[in-house]
Design a protein around this nucleic acid. Structure first.
Length: 425
RNA sequence: GGAGAGGUGGCCGAGUGGUUGAAGGCGCACGCUUGGAAAGCGUGUAUACGGGAAACUGUAUCGCGGGUUCGAAUCCCGCUCUCUCCGCCA
């Protein structure tokens, strides 16, 4: 969420940001920027009016208290009328305040100056490419044709449905090994491990900005549990871990990591990536979240990126770093790097991690501040990155390290996590 | 699921209708004291929004939302969370 005062005093900057993002305000909100500015003006006028009347009432109540203690009579009729008037104006103010807040919640974050301007992902900027692309003496297969994945996917579909998966034997063990490996490495980098619930409430999803705009992308429980949602990422519990808190300035930065299941409805993705492990309704992911001092967030963003990259490097997976364009970047992010891993079976790079600096956008929504000695309580900056998703990493391992006979050589760092097993299938 | 108790500032804790944004304590900051430290003494110490160049000032906030009242931390209703006991349960 952006600061109300900022939006009403500099609406042109908001308009410019929306244009860069190629977003039409009409699709976000039923009121325009100009209407918001007049709405705010009206709200502040009424608020001033209301506060004057309340001051009058408070003074009268104090006078009455004194009179009563002196045994004098109290004049009530006029004050009764005053209370009625106050209630009417207060109702109006509340209505306007809610409209104003709804509008602010529907606005995406401001963009960093470094974000490439462009309509879609074709404008993303490739920052660097890491690791040699493997060469095969045979046509490399897509991951879903390796091992027992085809068969297990059928079973998963019959148990649940499309876009669900199931692992058996060594693949189940590989998933487990990866989760342990990721958590261990993240802890080494200074992250504190959390194991949160994978259901969160409406306030938490609003805090990280999955709500109100992206309600279609998440699974919601049925009544009477309609205030509960399945988390689409553990960023939700990790960021909201400190919701409504005032942190110590000296404690920043705070690092958290969690391995959880993640649930996504993939509402707009019909027909895309229908086979294999790339796009699932339920997948597993280890996530990285940082709460940092505003002056440090640029530097921390690069550091966070290096933490995600570290995992890919340890696994010897070839990847590239991409800076997302204004039309492709997420709602809450002001600047975002994607890590894209090489998938030989598809002869392309695919997103495997998303590393975002949200500035104070989420902190404002979730009310996460830090205490300063001189400047009062200020909003922290939040950053998040994948560290890493299990299924997409498995797909990358299977495809990059496959052999002509169909076996797969595991990266050395996983051998101990696999109980000494070095080759799959 | 049943019964009960509770939610007050950074923390602990008083307050059951009236100049209470809230006693007292702890913590913290600054000063005095000391060779130095501790103790002691003094002063200060919530947040948000609005107005003001500033000093300062108005409003709101005692879990959340409603209600009663001239006036609510205090009374009433709903919700929520925590704790204790019972039941059930991985």
């Amino acid at each position: 969420m952006l600061d109300a005062k900022f939006v009403r005093t500099q609406p042109d900057l908001i308009a410019a940001m929306l244009k860069k993002r190629h977003l039409d305000l009409k699709t976000l909100s039923h009121i325009s920027l100009a209407e918001f500015v007049t709405l705010e003006q009206k709200r502040l006028d009424l608020l001033h009016n209301l506060e004057t009347l309340k001051a009058k009432r408070n003074q009268a109540a104090k006078d009455n208290a004194r009179k009563k203690s002196q045994g004098k009579t109290i004049e009530i009729a006029a004050l009764k009328q005053l209370t009625t008037t106050i209630q009417e104006i207060e109702d109006n103010v509340n209505t306007l305040t809610k409209k104003s807040k709804d509008f602010l919640l529907s606005l995406p974050n401001l963009l960093d100056a470094a974000v490439p301007v462009g309509r879609d992902e074709t404008f993303n900027k490739i920052i660097r490419t890491e690791g040699p692309i493997p060469e095969f003496s045979f046509p490399p297969k897509p991951h879903f044709q390796l091992g027992s994945l085809t068969e297990e996917n059928k079973r998963a579909a019959s148990i649940t449905g499309a876009r669900f998966t199931l692992f058996k034997g060594v693949l189940a063990k590989l998933a487990r090994a990866l989760s342990q490996f990721f958590l261990d490495e993240n802890i080494k980098k200074g992250y504190t491990e959390l194991l949160p619930a994978t259901i969160a409430n409406e306030a938490s999803l609003t805090g990280t900005a999955q709500l109100p705009k992206f309600a279609n992308d998440v699974f919601r429980l049925s009544p009477p549990h309609e205030n509960f949602y399945l988390i689409s990422t553990s960023e939700i519990p990790l960021v909201n871990y400190h919701a409504n808190e005032i942190l110590n300035e000296d404690d920043l930065p705070l690092y958290y990591t969690a391995y959880t299941s993640c649930y996504r409805s993939e509402a707009g993705a019909a027909g895309k990536d229908t086979r294999g492990l790339i796009r699932l309704h339920e997948f597993h992911k280890t996530e990285l979240v940082q709460f940092v001092h505003p002056t440090a967030s640029q530097v921390q963003h690069e550091k966070l990126l290096s933490h995600s990259e570290h995992l890919l490097k340890k696994l010897n997976l070839p990847y590239r770093v991409v800076l997302l364009a204004s039309g492709d970047i997420g709602f809450a992010a002001s600047k975002c790097y994607d890590l894209e891993v090489w998938l030989p079976g598809q002869n392309t790079y695919r997103e495997i991690a998303s590393c975002s600096n949200c500035l104070d956008f989420q902190a404002r929504r979730a009310n996460i501040r830090y205490r300063t000695k001189k400047k009062g309580n200020l909003f922290v900056h939040t950053l998040n990155s994948s560290g890493l998703p299990i299924e997409r990493t498995m797909a990358a391992i299977l495809e990059n390290f496959q052999t002509e006979t169909g076996t797969v050589h595991l990266p050395a760092v996983l051998h101990s996590y696999m109980g000494g097993c070095k080759t799959l299938f």
